[in-house]
Design a binder for these strands. Sequence first.
DNA 1: GTACGTGCAAATGATTTGCGTTAAG
DNA 2: CTTAACGCAAATCATTTGCACGTAC
Lengths: 128, 128
Amino acid sequence: MEKITYTNQRVEILNFLKDNYSHPTADEVFNAVRKKLSRISKATVYQNLKFLSGKGIIQEVNIKGASRFEPNLEAHHHLICKNCGKIMDFNSKELTEFALKLSEKVKDMRIESTNTNFYGICKKCGGK
Amino acid sequence: MEKITYTNQRVEILNFLKDNYSHPTADEVFNAVRKKLSRISKATVYQNLKFLSGKGIIQEVNIKGASRFEPNLEAHHHLICKNCGKIMDFNSKELTEFALKLSEKVKDMRIESTNTNFYGICKKCGGK
DNA sequence: GTACGTGCAAATGATTTGCGTTAAG
DNA sequence: CTTAACGCAAATCATTTGCACGTAC
């Protein structure tokens, strides 16, 4: 693993994402970090989000055409409202293990991780 | 279920997607259908892909910021190469049922469907 | 006939890139 | 120092929209 340069910008982005389970978009990260580093550019935010998810330090989820980011790399999945796009986490080591076990049969690819998305309608939008 | 107007454009799009498991992007659908209907516009393709997935006639998968479409609505999942973005289907009714069973516990959302993505490195890109 | 669908071009939103400048180690 | 990261503005992509015209039923 190569060394990582900890610039102020990178540190603030990580700091904002740390313990943040609201699944912010790149734009939301930009607006939040800007409060600390007023001169940060959107390009830097994008570059860092890509860099950090490439390193496996944060995770990317794609919902309705826009990427969202989160710190949690553990065995968890997503509940996504088809109507409003809201995302909630769904922790289940059990499900991850079940899926990984099944994927051992796969021949054409070396599987490294798995993620299950549950689609439905949230309470606010009329479900349940 | 309301009635559907079967325009030539819509029929050709469906026809191209039928039995097509290559997960084409909207642009690829456009280029394919254009061979039959040279005057079709990209907007029409987008409108129809949205319309058809809204009706549950086709399915949408979002990979690396772009939507991809497929006809298969059955219990299946995706193997996605993190390097080249290639998608392969992974059929497993077992996994779908396991996930749905787990999701019965969820209180904040009425779950309708589930989809598991497996991320890894494909043979071509150096995996296995 | 009329509501819905289409084609075109322009608009929007998300993300990326080129490049001269700055700062981390 | 020197190399990776930044900031900015322009570029690129995917997708959506407004609107006049066309067509399925």
